[in-house]
Design a protein around this nucleic acid. Structure first.
Ligand SMILES: NC(=O)c1ccc[n+]([C@@H]2O[C@H](COP(=O)([O-])OP(=O)(O)OC[C@H]3O[C@@H](n4cnc5c(N)ncnc54)[C@H](O)[C@@H]3O)[C@@H](O)[C@H]2O)c1
Ligand SMILES: NC(=O)c1ccc[n+]([C@@H]2O[C@H](COP(=O)([O-])OP(=O)(O)OC[C@H]3O[C@@H](n4cnc5c(N)ncnc54)[C@H](O)[C@@H]3O)[C@@H](O)[C@H]2O)c1
Lengths: 216, 216
DNA sequence: GCAACTTTGTGCACACATTCACAAAGGCAT
DNA sequence: ATGCCTTTGTGAATGTGTGCACAAAGTTGC
């Protein structure tokens, strides 16, 4: 379930504050969801709550981590070390959740060899070698859209079955490979859509030059 | 509908290639969705297709842009000019869709005054002034989690009703304000979850030190 | 021990999204 | 014109997610 990471974060925050147990209602508020939904989500992992009391924070933390596969480390490679790739490379939020960046790869000869966040950028020709040698299981693509599909094909051919894509293209992959997409432009467009609704209201017209006939 | 931006991108790509009309089937493949779903989505905007032929690319492009509110410009402010904020500031994909970055704001005195992507970083104290003077309608928060909620409160108080949040916290806002969240760590965790499923399969056990009793 | 209280886990109803399948609609060739 | 062929738009069936509401379960106080 896609909400487990949010619960995990809320629980971590509670654990740091020294809270021992938490009710579904409290945790739901912290996670920004309905308490019934939270209980239903958690019940899918098993019965980890105590009626009349709530959930033991540390125990639930462990169970969710295990369910998400965070009790083991995952090896990540970042392809494309431009503006975005650099930001990702230097981001501390990955390592803290068991995601280890094994390497950075780029095609630009001026970028290859640079030291970024304690790593040396390698040439994209090393891609397959790096995946095999470091046991990379998740690949992040942060290149221009034009290069994304062929790079995706290469990492899939090298055995990677999880890809996080920042390029604004729909990647096509064989069955069994998971692609998740982060597209800031789409997020902004969705905000703009709602913003327009709020401002304009339900005034449905203004097709301007395209309208030719109107029915009664 | 959240898929319209994807259709928009596919259509733009077709338009560049000089395609005049496209069938729901072709467009669905390009967007990575089912063709019936695509037709139903488009039918919510009105009847813009021609039976036996398909959809006129330019016309549909305009209709979707209008529906999404992209026929007007939206003014964006970016708060927090760190690793991520810099990448966003320099990203060309915003301007090309009618999102104009009006300003960059930060609290760090070493960052304030720097020129980034043709803009001078302003001090966060200028936040309210900037929002009013430039008519900012969408705010991007790219600060550490600890500062996000109070900054969010400030922009909402200043009249902004759309926020794109990169900080790993659940922002609480009054009704009528839209918040969208981009959380890379969550994306990676979801990939890890599926990766574990693929590798481990349905071997459900291994609760290790926590297990105490097992039923038959 | 017992009763009152709290909180979980879940049955149920409802809303919404997805997909299939097909009739109606329009273009095109003859 | 006429009939065939393609493709839309949508009814209906199915699936999925959400939230209410409550009984069962467990705790705490007396
Ligand atoms: N910067 C942002 O805030 C932002 C926001 C949304 C989406 N994106 C998307 O993320 C991607 C990267 O954005 P960016 O701003 O970092 O772009 P960028 O141009 O700064 O960086 C792209 C990097 O990819 C490298 N590259 C190009 N072809 C390659 C190849 N075949 N193999 C390996 N590396 C290759 C380039 O050398 C460059 O270093 C783009 O697709 C962009 O649309 C970026
Ligand atoms: N870098 C990434 O790839 C990445 C990935 C996922 C999430 N994030 C999240 O995005 C946010 C920013 O990440 P980053 O890597 O750019 O961090 P960063 O530390 O590089 O940048 C944060 C910036 O915010 C500024 N800031 C702090 N408090 C402020 C305030 N009160 N008002 C205005 N500005 C303030 C700081 O001066 C700094 O310039 C963080 O919450 C991080 O968790 C980053």
């Amino acid at each position: 379930m896609a909400r487990l990471p949010i619960y995990l974060r809320a629980l971590s925050s509670l654990a740091e504050r020294g809270t021992a147990t938490v009710s579904s209602e409290e945790l739901a508020v912290a996670a920004g969801v309905n308490s019934a939904k939270l209980r239903k989500d958690l019940s899918h992992l098993g019965s980890y709550g105590t009626r009349g009391v709530g959930y033991e924070v540390e125990y639930l933390l462990y169970q969710i981590s295990r369910e998400l596969g965070l009790t083991q480390d995952w090896v990540v490679a970042i392809i494309g070390v431009g503006n975005l790739g650099r930001a990702l490379a230097g981001y501390g939020g990955f390592a803290s959740r068991g995601f280890r960046v094994a390497g950075l790869l780029d095609a630009d000869t001026a970028t290859v060899g640079q030291d970024i966040a304690g790593m040396t950028v390698q040439h994209i020709d090393e891609l397959e070698t790096m995946i095999k040698d470091h046991g990379v299981s998740i690949t992040v693509i942060a290149t221009p859209a034009s290069a994304a599909q062929s790079l995706c094909d290469r990492v899939v051919a090298a055995g990677v079955t999880s890809v996080l894509n920042f390029a604004p293209v729909v990647l096509s992959v064989p069955e069994g490979v998971d692609v998740r997409k982060v597209d800031l432009s789409i997020e902004l467009q969705i905000l703009a859509f709602h913003e327009q609704r709020k401002a304009g209201g339900p005034e449905e017209n203004g097709t301007s030059q395209y309208i030719e006939a109107v029915e009664a």
